[in-house]
Design a binder for these strands. Structure first.
Length: 424
RNA sequence: CGGGGAGUAGCUCAGUCUGGUAGAGUGUCUGCUUUGGGAGCAGAAAGUCGCAGGUUCGAAUCCUGUCUCCCCGACCA
């Protein structure tokens, strides 16, 4: 995209409402705009990032045979009354009335809806197990929204739901999602720490949070240093969960040889048995022709929160440092050639655009310094400058956002340069 | 909900104590000069001072009410 067409407006100073670095940078880079407390408009740059994250999450869900669908954001209160959660959810649930004075709500989660759906479509054990998910906006009327999209009231979540015949099978499913989550966060460029969780309001007997390390994280963590390892993904569920990890009040203060840190919770998985299938009468016939309630699990990833979490993990004093796969633009071309008629930058732009889907050309009439600063703030992994070195040696100057390293490449070299091999 | 703070130009803030009719930086616009790290000079546009009521000759400033936002705590992807 040509930046002259991009709707954005970078800020030198950060608006005072922002307290943490990710919130400040998201505002300064024009990724989001606050509409009201805890509710945000996603501007073009932010929306590109959100979609990139969403696609990585989607890819990993699809890989384990999870079916993508889309449920409504508005739900009827009926099912919540059946499950018993209508009174329990309290003020955090946004309750609304339609013109007939029917009680509706803006969905904070979807266990009821999906359980009610599932029971009418699968009636035999032969149709199990089945996994379903969607990526959808949720609303939880948080007591105190804060830190930008980190704890918004309206937020984008991937929520998956599993249906199994019995407990044993449900545990196998749980392990599949567990490994899938590790892979998803690794693909996003993050180092996940799985933490055994208290099951809380949702209930059930098996639950893990996935935390990523960040100084500004809301949870305190204590974990075995071996959990931070490159080949964690190659270990079995049993091996991984045998290593110590805990958050907040679950931490054993007497335990030594653990690493203490802070984390941002970006995922949470639950196995909760028949908690919803029983009241909502979701059952199948087993191989003896008997009715059995399905064993269910739910698996959440905070997609919009991840944008902030990734910035918390990857930034410096000049701005964001996006992992390549997340960045709104993979590389940014800036021309500093004095000859106004030069189209070297546009030629290069067209050439690289064939190879990389999203790249940008800063064709705005601004000083070189301002363009470089914007490129750094927005967090583009590679900035290509066509200037002095091009005029003298026909070389493009390539700046690596993360390391600050500069490379000088010829016309031929730049076409084959492995830009995607970038680590922030 | 309890405790604290703040609403003045797109953004950051001064002015409020001590009432006299709106300021700075940055951004924006115009012109000229610039062109390797948020350029320089000159000029310009831009604010019902959150809202409502009150006191006063006169209110951003004092009083009352109200709304919104931010921070600390309980809740959570």
């Amino acid at each position: 995209m040509k930046l002259s067409n991009l709707f954005f407006n970078t800020l030198k100073e950060s608006p005072k409402e922002a307290q943490i670095i990710s919130h400040q940078l998201m505002l300064r880079a024009s990724m989001i705009r606050q509409h009201t407390s805890g509710i945000y408009t996603w501007l073009p740059l932010g929306f590109r990032v959100l979609k990139n994250i969403e696609n990585i999450v989607r890819y990993n869900q699809d890989k384990i045979g999870c079916n993508e669908m889309l449920m409504s954001t508005i739900q009827s209160s009926d099912l919540w009354k059946k499950s018993g959660r209508y009174p329990d959810y309290g003020k955090e649930m946004l309750r609304i009335h339609d013109r007939h004075d029917n009680e509706l709500l803006y969905g904070p989660t979807n266990e009821e809806v999906i359980t009610d759906l599932f029971k009418d479509y699968v009636n035999s054990y032969k149709g199990l197990p089945k996994y379903l998910y969607h990526i959808q906006w949720k609303f939880r009327d948080e007591i105190r929204p804060r830190f930008g999209v980190m704890r918004g009231r309206e937020f984008l979540m991937k929520d998956a739901y599993s249906f199994d015949l019995d407990h044993k099978s449900a545990v196998d499913t749980y392990k599949i999602f567990f490994k899938c989550y590790l892979q998803t966060f690794l693909d996003l460029g993050l180092q996940p720490i799985p933490v055994k969780a208290a099951t809380g309001a949702i209930g059930g007997d098996l639950s893990h949070e996935f935390q990523i390390l960040a100084k500004t994280g809301e949870s305190e963590l204590a974990y075995d240093s071996k959990l931070v390892s490159d080949d964690l993904i190659n270990k079995s569920y049993e091996e991984i969960t045998s290593m110590y990890s805990a958050s907040d009040e679950m931490i054993d203060r007497n335990k030594s040889d653990v690493v203490i840190g802070r984390g941002i919770e970006v995922g949470h998985i639950f196995n909760f048995g028949i908690k919803y299938s029983e009241p909502l009468e979701c059952y199948v016939l087993n191989n003896e022709g008997k009715r059995v309630n399905l064993h269910m699990g739910s698996y959440g990833i905070g997609v919009s929160r991840l944008t902030a979490a990734i910035i918390e993990a990857y930034h410096d004093e000049n701005g964001i440092k996006w992992p390549f796969q997340i960045s709104p633009f993979k590389l940014n071309i800036i021309s500093a050639l004095k000859n106004e008629n030069s189209i070297i930058d546009q030629d290069l732009y067209l050439k690289l655009k064939n190879k990389y889907e999203n790249i940008s050309l800063d064709d705005r009439d601004l000083s070189l310094g301002k363009k470089i600063k914007d490129s750094e703030l927005i967090g583009v992994p590679w900035t290509i400058i066509i200037g002095k070195n091009y005029e003298q040696n026909k070389q493009f100057e390539i700046i690596n956002r993360s390391s600050g390293e500069k490379l000088f490449l010829s016309d031929n070299e730049i076409e084959n340069f492995p830009f995607e091999q970038y680590t922030p």
